[in-house]
């Protein structure tokens, strides 16, 4: 059998099953009760309010704690048993450590600045990476739906990622944003640092023009705050929404069972894509952009 025939048969079975299911089950109408966005809703599990701020422990806090514990646990565990001849886990950690050390930090910062900011950038990378990765482990966190194991009510298993909540990337972005300005001011002084925002070649420009350009640059710095946080947040949220819809959410929402047959194989594809690429890529991009921002703030020329 030729490859072409195999592909055709496969596609035929794929669409045939969907059509068959459409004929058998038909459409049961729109499902108004299912709210897919509630998968990302944060129910306060332990309500804590201090000074008007809601510190309630919820799913996102659990994921953050898990990410922190996993990051610390893995790195400390590996660092305590570093072997001259590494096993696979150690090799993986060494490769990622090398990535943060030489690629993310080393290639965007001068050696002195790199030495000072390496722990921050590496911690950012590993923290975000573990946050992203545990977002693809089904954990019993969905308190909206519970099921019973020998009478014990267990929350339904669900996928969730702390980074798919805007607060978390935004908090990290704020740290980055403040850090690179502070580093820039420390390296150059306040006025020279602000002056360095202007691109070179504007020395002859009149003050109004300079002010205008400076305003644009200032806006671009604030835009970084949004772009950096929203990039991570939106990527992770979109990934999880895709998994949710492809994994059956769309079929449930629209009440068309046949749609599930079409989308379900895609869920596997997106899952592999998310775990294999997006989770690492977004952690890498976040920490690399941070390094670039710090490098831009401290380098002699803009």
């Amino acid at each position: 059998m030729t490859t072409r025939a195999k592909v055709l048969i496969g596609l035929g079975a794929y669409f045939g099953l969907a059509i068959l299911m459409l004929l058998v089950f038909g459409s049961s109408g729109k499902n108004e009760a299912f709210q897919p966005q509630n998968e990302f809703k944060l129910e306060p599990w332990v309500s804590i309010h201090l000074g008007g701020i809601d510190f309630s422990i919820n799913k996102a806090v659990l994921y953050l704690v898990l990410a922190s514990a996993l990051t610390i646990g893995t790195m400390v565990w590996i660092s305590r048993r570093m072997q001259q001849k590494p096993n696979r886990v150690q090799t993986a950690i060494e490769v990622s450590y090398d990535l943060t050390k030489n690629n993310i930090t080393g290639s965007h910062l001068d050696p002195k600045t790199a030495a000072r900011w390496f722990p921050f950038l590496a911690a950012l990378f590993f923290f975000i990476w573990f946050s992203n990765m545990i977002g693809f482990l089904p954990l019993p966190t969905n308190t909206e739906h519970e099921f019973s194991i020998f009478g014990l009510q267990v929350p339904a298993f669900a996928l969730y990622a702390a980074t798919a909540n805007l607060s978390i990337p935004l908090a990290l972005t704020l740290v980055v944003w403040v850090s690179y300005h502070v580093e820039g001011i420390r390296a150059k002084g306040l006025v020279p640092y602000l002056a360095s925002w202007l691109p070179p070649g504007l020395e002859e420009m009149n003050p109004i023009g300079k002010t205008f350009i400076f305003a644009i640059e200032a806006i671009s710095h604030f835009a970084r705050m949004i772009s950096l946080s929203v990039r991570l947040f939106a990527n992770m949220l979109a990934g999880h929404l895709l998994l949710l819809f492809m994994g059956g959410g769309l079929a449930v929402l629209l009440g068309i069972a046949a749609l599930g047959a079409l989308t379900f194989p895609l869920a596997f594809f997106f899952f592999v894509l998310e775990v294999g690429l997006i989770a690492t890529l977004q952690a890498f991009i976040f920490s690399t952009l941070t390094a670039i921002y710090i490098g831009g703030a401290t380098s002699a020329s803009h």
Binding site: D54, A162, A171
Partner: peptide, 11 residues
Amino acid sequence: LGLMIWTLALF
């Protein structure tokens, strides 16, 4: 804000 402070502290 609370979640952001949680994030900051844990990070």
